[in-house]
Amino acid sequence: MADIALARASKMAPETARELRHARRLSVGARCALPVAVLLAIGFLAPMVAILAYSFATPRSFDVFRSFTLENFASLFDPTNTVWLSFAWSVGFALFTVAILAVIAYPIAYGLNAVFGRWAGFVSVLFVFPLFVSENVRLYGWVLFFIKNGVLDGTLKWLGFSGGPEVLYTPGVTLFGMAYTYLPFMLFPMTLGLALVPRDLVDAARDLGAGRLFIWREIELPLAMPGILIGMLLTFVLAVGATAEAKILGGQSIIVISHDIEIAFTYSQNWPLGSALAVVVSVFIAALTLVALSKLDLDRMLGRR
């Protein structure tokens, strides 16, 4: 057997170089995937590379790939620069949005699972429907609702009350807008997560005398946690980059970090500074996402246990 193998190997020896070349060539699958890979590289990577390159260019110039300076980053981390305020508002509001939505979405997701059972996932997709209407249009709708003599104020006055509360153009209403906008992104994964909790397990725990709180803490919450965490992560990442709520509902009562990036690319025409800001924010979010994802078992989340 070994002799035969040896003989075959020696017989193939003259072709080794060709074989090697062949082996080095991409597999058929990889070659088929090449157009998609190229498209991704152009559509996804190229803008990232451009932003990264711009962040090292001379401030207020277009000398991308032709200049290298750390000045943009230095100015961002300069203690006199107040851009950290915008960053703090964005991160703070994103955290608040996540906390509020976790509390709001959990009972809804629980209810959906209890009522619709295995169709809960599908029903929660219905919550995604508002996303088909532009976010700006929906937020302007809320402005009409809250504005003086608008839907709320006008109705209350018509009913004989003194009028609605003055909430428009405040940080509070910005937070409300964010919770409203990102509800589907928390609800959908959370509903899927809760659907993974086997009913039998809850019943068994109850038969063994476990209380409601104990079942929730020891069975439901840990089993639904991957869905909850994905919902939280998704909401946080989107909320950190939110601008429209602070602009339209909040009347720019606070300036969020994505608005600062926008100002740098428009009125300031300081693309390198805007890029540096975008890089810092992206690195922060990427690091956070990687840490969170490393703690998640996606296989379990998707039911491939």
């Binding site: 620069n81 107040t82 305020l85 915008s86 940080p171 720019q252 606070i254 300036i255 600062d260 300081n270």
Partner: peptide, 15 residues
């Protein structure tokens, strides 16, 4: 440029 930077910083102090 200088004036705009000052104004942008002033805006951030609204919150």
């Amino acid at each position: 440029d200088k004036a705009l930077d000052i104004m942008n910083a002033a805006k951030r102090l609204r919150g």
